[in-house]
Design a binder for these strands. Structure first.
Length: 561
RNA sequence: GCGCCCGUAGCUCAGCUGGAUAGAGCAACGGCCUUCUAAGCCGUAGGUCAUAGGUUCGAGUCCUAUCGGGCGUACCA
């Protein structure tokens, strides 16, 4: 609907240029939007104000010319007015909205989808936790945002690959192996023989026990049987990594998050990709030697100082394999790559992009894209739940899922802009009342289903569009609902384009709110069969949209609650 | 010190990439209800958009500076 109006405005503008009622020129950037204020029409455009300057005429005069040239007989416009400083307000015929309801029926589970991606390949890397412990709250937010982004991108026509990257070989993993080995040998954390900076969590004991018992563990991307030999550090490492990867997989599965591809940092080295990338940067003259180290001139690409690539001891700094990894992503054909990470990794953004430019491989500026989420604070009983990884006791993702449920956890994690810090109120998330936004949204869906069940007992079923007297839908609540239903596809498109899942939770809360308001004010099942049918049809459209919306968040739409 | 993010109602947050009188939920206050889903519904009040400048027809939104919070800022990942 919005697009149709944009098109009408464009046609009017070209007519004005053609008959010289406006001085011919460019088509300026302009918007057609839903006004925030009731009484300003169904849609409004600022086009006249953006043209006023170049036309050297007042915005209202420009608007006059445009309105005079609006195409006639489209059957959707009721009236048009010029208001305020020069807005053009469009009032649509009620019948124009009926198209929306027809569309929802036709598209069903696909309503809300669009095709901006045109089937092009996008990769989303998220979570990417190293296998040194259970997933914590921060990973949970990343998992929820990343997975939702994948669903949104898929819904807007992208061919999405979900990828998980981790390190199974570095210093932290060696530390993990030593910690498990110590537990195997019965060494306690307060023992002088305990490894420096060893992992003290209870889960380390579990891994050690399983290793000694000769268990076999199977993760999504690897399977290992314990060698039971406490001297074989390599075997302990392999087993520990597999064990913790399996733990993470179980948590992610409980969260309904899955990956298509797992990538290992160690493979970047063993395959020679790291060396190849370094060699190429050297050949392209973006590096220099100084103080026994190899430096990348990242200042050529917007960094505030150059960065060391290869240390005096011959090993690479952390961003080098990251550059090699992203070159690999590029060579795999992803025209877009999105990295979802905690904001504490933001320093890598400039370096990885600089490294890719230094490779001169045709990678566009600003590739890859990043979504960095801020910290999560967990509140219970009005107090902050302290997270202490060192002590080995902290709120894990699994704890949260077990306590408040998958749906509520996911909803809360994506409810805020990734950019802003998030307060996770456990008490609110658990509440079975309408104060809880998840409950509020899901209950709207369940309530509609309940009404359908009630209607069925009285012999009513929701009709097909062609049999529904949709013209009978004329109360303010009904019209507001239809208008909001019509805005769902563009809301999804915006959320996907700007990587902002919270637009979906906001939309769903608003839609649920309008529905509950409608419900409280109007009876659905009445003696008036035609009106009852029309309302049942409307509610079927609301239910479809709610279900599609929560589906994009990976959340269920219960039939009853 | 430098970089990135944030600062909007008492609290938690929106504000659709510069538009009209800045919104929602909770809490507060006032009323109604016992009717398809259940303590629910309606209404009222609440603001110098951190501060000060700037850009322009128009700024919560863009620019500069300052203040406050978070995260980075190692030849750690």
């Amino acid at each position: 609907m919005r697009e149709q109006l944009r098109e009408l405005v464009r046609q009017a503008l070209e007519c004005c240029y053609a008959d010289n009622s406006l001085t011919p020129g460019e088509i300026p950037p302009y918007v057609v939007e839903v006004p925030s204020q009731d009484g300003h029409g169904d849609f409004a455009s600022n086009v006249a104000m953006t043209l006023a300057r170049s036309q050297k005429r007042s915005p209202r005069a420009v608007a006059q010319a445009l309105v005079a040239n609006l195409p006639q007989g489209t059957g959707i416009l009721h009236r048009v007015e010029i208001a305020g400083p020069g807005f053009i307000n469009f009032f649509l015929q009620d019948a124009a909205w009926q198209v929306t309801l027809s569309e929802i029926e036709i598209q069903g589970a696909d309503y809300g989808k669009s095709n901006a991606g045109e089937g092009k390949k996008v990769q989303v890397e998220f979570v990417s936790a190293n296998p040194t412990g259970p997933l914590h709250i921060g990973h949970g937010r990343g998992a929820a945002i990343g997975d939702t982004l994948c669903r949104l991108l898929a819904a807007t026509g992208w061919d999405v690959t979900r990828e998980f990257y981790y390190n199974d070989a570095g210093a932290q993993i060696a530390n993990l192996a030593l910690s498990v080995q110590a537990r195997c040998l019965g060494i306690q954390a307060d023992d002088p023989r305990w490894p420096a900076n060893g992992y003290q969590g209870e889960y380390i004991r579990d891994v050690a026990r399983a290793y000694l018992a000769g268990e076999t563990v199977e993760a999504d991307d690897r399977q290992v049987t314990a060698a039971r030999d406490t001297d074989d550090l390599d075997a302990i490492r392999e087993f520990s990594v597999a064990s913790l990867r399996r733990e993470q997989d179980q948590d992610l599965t409980a969260f309904d998050v899955r990956f298509d591809v797992y990538s290992l940092e160690s493979e970047l080295y063993s395959s020679g990709r790291v060396d190849r990338a370094v060699k190429r940067m050297v050949e392209k003259n973006h590096t220099y030697e100084q103080d026994n180290a190899l430096w990348l001139r990242t200042t050529d690409f917007g960094d505030d100082k150059d960065r060391v690539m290869r240390k005096a001891d011959g090993s690479y700094t952390y961003f080098v394999p990251d550059v090699a990894y992203h070159l690999d992503k590029w060579e795999r054909g992803f025209v877009r790559v999105v990295n979802e990470q905690g904001a504490d990794h933001h320093s890598t953004v400039t370096r990885v992009r600089a490294g890719l430019q230094a490779l001169d491989a045709g990678v566009p500026l600003g590739w890859p894209e990043y979504v960095l989420h801020q910290m999560v604070t967990v509140m219970r009983g009005g107090e902050e739940v302290k997270i202490s990884k060192r002590a080995g006791s902290y709120v894990t993702l699994r704890d949260l899922i077990d306590e408040v449920g998958r749906d509520a956890t996911r909803f809360f994690f994506v409810m805020r802009r990734p950019d802003s810090q998030l307060v996770f109120d456990i008490d609110l998330a658990k509440q079975q009342t309408l104060d809880n936004p998840v409950y509020y949204v899901q209950y709207a869906h369940a309530r509609i289903k309940s009404i359908f069940a009630n209607a069925a007992e009285k012999g009513f079923t929701p009709p097909r569009f062609r049999d529904a007297a949709v013209a009978r839908l004329e109360t303010p609540e009904e019209l507001a609902l239809i208008r909001l239903l019509a805005a769902f596809p563009e809301t999804v498109a915006g959320a996907a384009a700007f990587f902002e899942p919270h637009r979906i939770t906001g939309y769903l809360q608003e839609l649920a709110g309008l529905f509950h308001g409608f419900y409280n004010k109007n009876r659905v099942i009445t003696e008036d069969a035609a009106l009852t049918g029309a309302r049942l049809f409307l509610l079927a459209c609301v239910a479809t949209t709610l279900k599609n919306g929560v589906g994009m968040l990976g959340i269920s739409a219960p039939e009853s609650m």
